[in-house]
Amino acid sequence: MSMKGFDHGNRGVGIRNHQLILPSVVCSTRVSSRIAREVGAVTFAHQHGCGFIGNDVGRITDYFASLANHPNVSSTLIVGLGCETLQGNELADKLLTKNKSTNYLVTQDSGGVAGTVSSGISAAMQLIRDFPSAATVLPRLHLGIDLSNDNFKVDEIVAALTEVGVDITVAASHKNSGLNFSDLMEAGAHVILSFPDPNQPPSGFPLIPTINVSSGSPLHLAISKDFDLEPQASAEEIMEKIYAVVNGELTKVEAIGSGEIIAAREVRSV
């Protein structure tokens, strides 16, 4: 099966061609969304980047670096406020792409909101011009499996996909799909196959297409239209769907809009 990809340089070959506008602190999420809307990039709101201590500083910095380095990302514009705990230059130090397809802006040095939005739009467009993504063939697919519904048996799918050379990471340490997605993002999965808990709705991760498989629970049956696959989907059907999504078909969650990111923290905010 041939798989389409995008050459994203140091980030690797991705299956989506997303520019990421990454707010490095909650205070710049609105500015980021205004920039992203203008240039057709991906962004998301979160509540991190300031007022945190201990291991969380390194944890969240690494998490944001993984987002910026993800293979589905063509280029990243980091948008900070200026006075926050997580400083953009320290984040940039962790990036594979430092000084290349990553740029960094700070609202407090850019004349305020309007100034940051307009310089952000220019900077994002410049990144797109400087780093055009060439279409290529994906040499090896990395599939992430969210097994927050551990009743689901995935051995057959894992065996079949492994045999055809797909790398697989299974995240089963959380009952919460969002936390599993974050683990899979950090592992560099191109696409996620999610088996949500019977009492949880389908969900997804920004940047990474997420295929949701219904459990057949009452909730899942009630919203079956929001699932990509039925509970009785065979291993062949699941593989077929994965290949379709890899080659560009939008998942149900992608069509609604990007999901939330859920980043774990050890300590309360201060």
Binding site: I256, G257, G259, E260, I261, I262
Partner: peptide
């Protein structure tokens, strides 16, 4: 009331004539 419904809430508010929405990361835990 669930993180998975935030994108839908934003879509409603963004398309409306003045409603507001918020997003969060709680999934019923």
């Amino acid at each position: 009331l669930h993180s998975a419904l935030c994108a839908t809430a934003r879509k409603i508010a963004d398309g409306s004539i003045g409603a507001v929405a918020v997003s969060h990361d709680w999934s019923g835990e």
